[in-house]
Design a protein around this nucleic acid. Structure first.
Lengths: 356, 356
DNA sequence: TGTAGGTTTGTGTGCGGACACATTGTAGAA
DNA sequence: TTCTACAATGTGTCCGCACACAAACCTACA
């Protein structure tokens, strides 16, 4: 089909018996057009199935679009470091195009810094924003401003549906917990006590972690795996020394033989304890390919990791925005990443493979 | 960095005190240039770090690049059907650009058809080719022609290093076997007999399947899992009735409790036997998210699948070619895909997630 | 009937680069 | 010295679209 040359605006103009400017006007809904002209142009457009040449379009409008990416400071946390890498990659990939991509970092541990950075972002006057909305309330305030200003935004990592972003990129947390449960169940010997460890530093994480836990527990009940006893423990904040002791306490007191850690950072913190006290025989399931997690997986302390792919999430977020601005391509409302199961044998294939 | 406007050819020309045509000549190595002019231009290029505006470039040269994709007929096999889908997706994605992507299908079961199709591909006069080189010798002959004509090509799915393609896209088969072994080992109860089933219809597959088997066996020996006994069986071709009986024979005679199937189609064929004769308690590890495999995974007959991602492989192959032709971007020499472990709990997240 | 003021339509240039074609420069032959 | 042949360089147009600006067309009012 369509072995023909692509239809150009000029062709439409000729067919409709008007000038290119008129066609341009109906295409972009700018300026006023007479009923007759509108109809003629519309007819021609439909008949030909005109599609604009995006290459020529972006070249013609010399506009440079501005994209702001807001994430927690990569220097403070390896998980966000990977997100940062994804944004950097996107920056490189799109460097040839008329887009300016700028990163803005806030402090993962300070809500106030989010507000400050949000202010900076607004000063940057972005045409759209990619954002990891870690701080719920602060984010909502920010969204109000953005909506008012008509600046579209994409969320990733953490979803806030009521924010009505043009797209959310992340994972199904409930299902993620089920996968963790599944891996733990296949690896553990039947009867046994399982500990779900929530190790986090920021309260608002709690909601999300509970979602994982719900999936985790549901898996066991759905499959009637009653030989396993599940107990969950919160470590809201941790001081290195105390943390070790407390975790060890729990493991010994409740004679735990399997652990599910709901956070990426928590994964290696828990692994460190198992490693330090020679408890490698416990089955440990955690999250993400952080440097330390990789290490403990090679060492056999961590058995499975579920990959949230922070790098790819961020990369895709920026790419969606570029396509949205430059090529008027609407991103999917929600893009749920696959729940990748990482093991000792396939981990390398994940580390070395590109981002595509 | 580079808060400045992008450097244009015009700027370079001014800096070097020559015309844009001269700059164009050195950039494209066409026409003759004096030593002096060359030097001046080169200096300016280096000093400014000039990067061509690819948008303008593709618009300017009105050339339409032709890409041929050669794969086994999607209608005959669900695996290749997915590859076809990947090519189709790429076609849509790049439809706006100056590329014409054409698919050519050969019969998976007839070497002669490959030759015929190769002839057609040449007639199409492609600027480059994406190819799944299923038939080794026939492919080699074809490569000779392509090299002579100077037509670059990318291979996917099956590698033929001596063909020296500009890129290979696929998986590490050896490691793939190891992952299969790992999953089987975590799921099976200790002592047990394992069957490695090679179910294929084309001989040349054998080499690749042996590579998977090697990885599979190495995993067990490396981990000193001596409680498991591994036996491999070849089903070169199969007639439905006979196949069932033979497989059943093997399973009963050697009291098999775990199965590793090295092919995607073989996976559901084996699963069908287990299903039919009520042998769901056997652990089965196979390949790929084929329709029937998905079904048997939901039903609990197949325990793990390793995803080779045929759709994405093909999609990426075409995309690499487009970038290579249009934007002069060199693809990686080898792109090894992650060895994705699919389970009952994460399978949906794979089915519903996009291609990115 | 002339004209101000708004509405509708058209013309022309620029975006950055590719490339056909024109022009200038230069060395050797006549 | 003049002419030829080719090497070296330059000019101008086009790619398809966006958009500023100009022109033509109406309508209503004096």
């Amino acid at each position: 089909m369509a072995e023909f040359k692509n239809i150009r605006i000029k062709d439409i103009a000729e067919m409709a018996g008007v000038s290119v400017a008129t066609v341009d006007r109906v295409l972009h809904k700018r300026g006023k057009i007479s009923e007759k002209a509108l109809k003629k142009v519309m007819d021609a457009l439909e008949k030909t199935g005109y599609k604009p040449n995006l290459i020529a379009s972006t070249l013609g409008s010399n506009k440079v679009y501005r994209i702001a990416a807001m994430i927690p400071d990569p220097a403070l946390d390896d998980y966000w470091n990977q997100s940062g890498a994804g944004i950097f990659k996107a920056k490189e990939d799109w460097s040839q195009y008329n887009v300016r991509i700028e990163s803005f970092y806030f402090n993962l541990y300070e809500k106030s810094s989010f507000k400050q950075v949000a202010e900076k972002v607004l000063q940057f006057q972005p045409d759209s924003i990619l954002l990891a909305p870690i701080f719920y309330h602060e984010a909502l305030d920010f969204f109000d401003v953005l909506k008012e200003k008509g600046i579209p935004y994409i969320l990733f990592n953490t979803n806030i549906p009521e924010a009505e972003p043009i797209s959310f990129i992340g994972q199904d947390l409930y299902q993620s917990g089920r996968v963790g449960a599944e891996m733990l169940a296949t690896k553990m010997k039947a009867p046994g006590n399982i500990a779900v460890l929530h190790i986090y530093e920021d309260i608002q994480n709690a909601v999300h972690l509970k979602e994982k836990e719900r999936g985790f527990r549901d898996y066991f009940s759905d499959n009637r795996l009653e030989e396993f006893n599940i107990q969950s423990y919160d470590f809201g904040s941790y001081l290195v020394a105390e943390f070790d002791r407390e975790v060890l306490n729990v493991l010994n007191r409740d004679s735990i033989s399997g652990i599910f850690v709901s956070t990426s950072k928590g994964s290696y913190l828990a692994a460190a304890v198992l490693d330090k006290y020679g408890k490698k025989d416990l089955v440990l399931v955690g999250y993400d390919l952080l440097k330390d997690n990789i290490h403990y997986m090679y060492d056999g302390v961590i058995n499975f990791l579920i990959n949230q792919n922070p790098k790819k999430q961020a990369f895709l977020g920026v790419s969606y925005l570029v396509n949205y601005l430059l090529f008027k391509k609407q991103p999917p409302v929600t893009e749920l990443f696959p729940l990748e199961v990482i093991t000792r044998e396939n981990i390398k294939s994940y580390l070395y493979s590109g981002l595509h």
